[in-house]
């Protein structure tokens, strides 16, 4: 698939996104939750051009009439499936869910969430660090969902995280990137990829996030709760690529006062 970057960014050489030992052409990672139905989900994911898709681990619903399994729609041959530990409130619980996800036989990667507060879904960074250390020891490739705090991110990197995933704003809030400065600080100081996870509400949020130098974005609700998810997914794909291009291009400095764009000389007397 040709990306916009290749079409308009003549001479711009972008590296593919590399996390641990895998490379991805798309810098847009998407979740599979909250769509109205599975068909709508897979159409949106394809329109987003996403290669990596997150999934949750839950009890089989024994009362439900036999529905198609999620993996019937999300073919692991087409998408790289990334299990999460959403809904876990302690390191032990998150580790249990991570192991269940790995037992699927699909992957030893995990998007690690250890939540510390129900209303904000902010991470419990102590539990997150503890779980990261243990899972890295067990051979997992760990992508922790964290806040946008540099010190925590450095500790996660030190603990062996393959990427860090700071929030742009709370999960499902659609408030966009509340603190662009922190993303730039993280990018400046970390060696592992910085993937902004959560908070994007619409395309401009994605673009602004990528303009800060984020390596990728993970989003779910912005697509699933759009009136037309497939079209929003297309917009997000373009926005991520536009933001990436703008970052690579290097923006002009901000100034408080006007500077004319036309020559001062040559005016009529």
């Amino acid at each position: 698939m040709t990306t916009t970057l290749e079409e308009v960014g003549a001479g711009v050489r972008d590296e593919p996104l590399t996390i641990a030992d895998r490379t991805f052409r798309s810098r847009l990672i998407v979740g599979s939750g909250k769509y109205r139905d599975s068909e709508e989900m897979v159409q949106a994911i394809r329109a987003a051009g996403a290669e990596m898709v997150t999934v949750a681990v839950r009890r089989v619903d024994l009362d439900a009439s036999k529905e198609e399994s999620l993996l019937h729609w999300l073919d692991p041959e087409e998408f790289f499936v990334l299990p999460n530990t959403a809904g876990c409130y302690s390191a032990d619980e998150a580790i249990r869910y991570a192991r269940l996800g790995r037992a699927s036989g699909l992957t030893d990667w995990v998007k690690l969430e250890v939540i510390g507060d129900q209303a904000t879904l902010l991470p419990d960074t102590d539990g997150l660090l503890e779980a990261t250390r243990i899972l890295v020891d067990e051979g997992f490739t760990v992508l922790p969902y964290t806040n946008d705090d540099l010190v925590t991110a450095l500790k996660l990197e030190e603990a062996g995280a393959a990427a860090v995933m700071p929030l742009g704003s709370p999960i499902g809030s659609g408030l966009g990137l509340l603190n662009p400065v922190n993303v730039r600080i993280l990018k400046d100081r970390l060696s592992v990829p910085v993937i902004v996870d959560a908070g994007v509400g619409t395309a401009s949020d994605a673009c602004i996030t990528m303009e800060q130098g984020a390596d990728a974005i993970l989003m779910n609700t912005a697509l699933a709760e759009a009136e037309r998810p497939e079209i929003m997914a297309g917009a997000m794909r373009l926005a991520v690529e536009a933001g990436r291009l703008a970052y690579l291009a290097g923006r002009m400095p901000r100034r408080e006062w006007a500077v004319p764009s036309s020559p001062l000389g040559g005016m009529l007397s």
Binding site: Y35, T54, V57, R58, V60, S69, G101
Partner: peptide, 10 residues
């Protein structure tokens, strides 16, 4: 016994 599978999630 816990029987789990993948469901949609972010």
């Amino acid at each position: 016994v816990e029987l789990v599978n993948f469901v949609g999630g972010g």
